[in-house]
Structure formats: C-alpha cells, structure tokens
C-alpha cells in the first residue's frame, strides 16, 4: 500500500508536468535505530514514480561515508533536493504532515532554478560572503511551519553560501534541546541568531544578514 492517495497522485502528476530541469531527490536512511526511515523511503520512491524528471538516489547513512561527506549530512533520515546543482536544501526527519507541501514546492522551484524571492530580498542576500547554515525546527502538525521552511530554502536556492535545513524537532530531541526548541517554527542561523515564528520574507532575510556581523 502506498502512502499517497490516488487523488493526490493525480494532482501531483499534473503539477510535475510543469517541471523544467531534472530534480534529484537524494535520501540517506539507516536500517537500524530509525523510526521513520522506511516511511520516508516509501514516500520519496512514490514521488519519484510520478515523473520521469524526478530521480531518486538512496544511500545508507551508516556505511556510505563518501556521500555523507559530499552532502555534509549530520543526521538521518536526510533528504536533499538537488537541481542543476546542490542548492543546499536539506530535510532532516520525515517531511510529513504540513511539510509535505514544502517538498513539492521546493521540487518545483529547484527544477526552475528560481527562488521567487523579491528583487529587494535578492539584493540584500548579495551581502553574504561566508557560509551560513539556517536550521528551521518544525513539527508535522504545525500549519505555520512550511512558510519558514520555504523561506529558508528559497534563500538557499538564491545564495550558494547558504545551506537550509528543515529539522523535524521531535525526531531529533538532542538537537532540539540544544537550541531550547519548545515552539515551532523556530529558526537558528549559524548558532547565533534565533527567532520563533514564521516571519515575513523581509524580516527573515534581515535575520540572516544579521548573522553576518563579526561579533556573531
């Protein structure tokens, strides 16, 4: 039995008919010690079956260290959505519930190679001159979270210095505890800047820019 319903598949097939460039879904899972790895594998395989523009690659987190290093992955399950290049889009933990829509929208943007950020945002992001890691903590039942995840991922598409992670907070309690996550969406940028809530695009970007300050 599949995870997607027939009617969702129809809808997605139609959406994916608009895809431009190929999109690669790179998934890292592990046999042992992983509650949602199998579900995520199934889900991603189903997505891959809906369009020949979507390619799926599986790697084993426990053994395939070369790939792990290539993608700089530090937890599992991990999903990378790659287009003509690796834009830095990461999903740690299963993108279930509301986050499923983020995956679909990311696929569309990545295929097009376009972030759809405003011109003003794009201009501001040009100031980034060093690596930035954005982590957006979510839960699958949070309707406001996809907005933050998508904004972070759009920034990653726009700027090659940026890696943007969705982190499903309940699957990674140690990481969540480290950052004191008790409300979602919570965004952490380079371990220095933090904010709670789905901020509008311009404020989100100001947060990213403030992480560039030398005292951070």
């Amino acid at each position: 039995m599949g995870l997607l319903q027939e009617k969702d598949k129809e809808y997605l097939k139609n959406e994916f008919s608009k895809l431009k460039n190929d999109v690669k879904l790179v998934l890292f899972t592990q046999e042992e010690d992983c509650t949602y790895c199998n579900d995520e594998k199934m889900l991603i395989d189903e997505l891959g079956s809906l369009s020949d523009k979507i390619k799926v690659e599986h790697y084993d987190y426990a053994t395939q260290n070369d790939k792990k290093e290539q993608y700089k992955i530090d937890k599992y399950p991990a999903l990378i959505i790659e287009g003509v290049r690796d834009y830095g889009i990461r999903y740690y933990g299963i993108p279930a519930g509301y986050e499923f829509a983020s995956v679909i929208e990311d696929i569309m943007d990545v295929s097009e190679g376009s972030s759809h950020l405003t011109e003003e945002s794009k201009k501001k992001l040009q100031a980034i001159n060093k690596p930035i890691r954005i982590q957006v903590f979510v839960t699958p039942s949070c309707p406001y979270c996809p907005k933050a995840v998508r904004t972070a991922h759009k920034i990653a598409i726009e700027n090659d210095f940026v890696t943007a992670d969705m982190v499903e907070a309940t699957e990674f309690p140690e990481v969540s505890n480290k950052y004191g996550v008790q409300s979602v969406p919570k965004t952490v940028i380079n371990d220095g800047v933090e904010f709670v809530g789905a901020l509008p695009e311009d404020q989100f970007i100001d947060g990213v820019i403030s992480a560039l300050e030398p005292n951070r």
């Binding site: 996550v181 008790q182 409300s183 809530g197």
Partner: peptide
C-alpha cells in the same frame, strides 16, 4: 519565554511537553 515554554499553538507545540 515565547518559544521557550510559552506557546499560543497547542497543535504546533504540544509534542514538546
């Protein structure tokens, strides 16, 4: 403490408690 124990969304944040 908003986001550190103060919440306005049970559906979003219930799982942390």
């Amino acid at each position: 403490f908003t986001g550190r124990g103060v919440s306005y969304c049970a559906q979003c944040d219930g799982a942390f408690f």
